[in-house]
């Protein structure tokens, strides 16, 4: 039995995060009413992205060119590498415009439950990037979770013999955070990381 193109499209859209079968049907109707202005351009964009976007062989970012735009940008500071867990974290840091160095995507964190071991992460690729001595600082921008920080400590151990400075993001009060609503862990971390004011 062959499935109709309508049902096939609905089924595929229903697999996207945030969409169920009902919302997928609404999306299909929405697209069909805008075939020329949205549906065909979307199909072309999907085809192009599927064929052209690939992992950057240097940092692990996703881009249509290899090395990616961040790695090729000569205006960025090549002496600082910011290590992130995945591409979404890289994009979050880029949105902030707060960092102008290079990145390195680890591809996950050490996880007992998921069976992620050091060999499954792009740690060797990071060590390879540091071999020529041009990088002076590595910033570990990993999540403030047990797995994230366990991974950060492991990466630090591997980097220490290379003599490169290793730093990490601060933990504590978020901008706009009210003490009364913060969890105990964040408050503890904020107190431990307090610094001179003024």
């Amino acid at each position: 039995m062959t499935i109709s193109p309508l049902d096939h499209l609905t089924q595929l859209l229903a697999k996207l995060p945030g969409l169920g079968p009902r919302s997928a049907r609404r999306a299909v109707l929405f697209l069909l009413k805008r075939r020329e202005t949205l549906m065909l351009p979307l199909a072309e964009a999907l085809r192009k992205a599927a064929h052209e976007v690939k992992d950057c062989s240097v940092c692990g970012n996703l881009d249509a060119q290899d090395p990616c735009g961040v790695c090729r940008d000569a205006r960025r500071d090549a002496s600082v590498i910011c290590v992130v867990e995945d591409v979404a974290d890289l994009w979050a840091l880029e949105r902030s415009h707060a960092f102008r160095g290079q990145y390195h995507v680890l591809g996950g964190t050490l996880s007992a439950l998921e069976g992620v071991r050091p060999d499954d992460l792009r740690i060797e690729a990071l060590l390879e990037r540091l071999k020529d001595g041009a990088v002076k600082e590595v910033i570990l921008a990993l999540n403030a979770t047990v797995e994230g920080q366990t991974t950060a400590h492991y990466v630090t151990e591997r980097l220490t013999p290379l003599g490169v400075a290793v730093t990490k993001l601060a933990h504590g009060l978020p901008v706009g955070g009210e003490l009364d609503y913060l969890d105990d862990g964040t408050l503890t971390a904020a107190l431990q990381a307090r610094r001179t004011f003024g």
């Binding site: 400590h153 969890d183 503890t188």
Partner: peptide, 20 residues
């Protein structure tokens, strides 16, 4: 959550490894 045991130890690799 009653006590976030890991929170004070995020900078301490030995304790984090033991906890994990």
């Amino acid at each position: 959550v009653v006590t976030a045991h890991a929170a004070p130890w995020l900078d301490h690799p030995e304790v984090l490894n033991i906890m994990a």
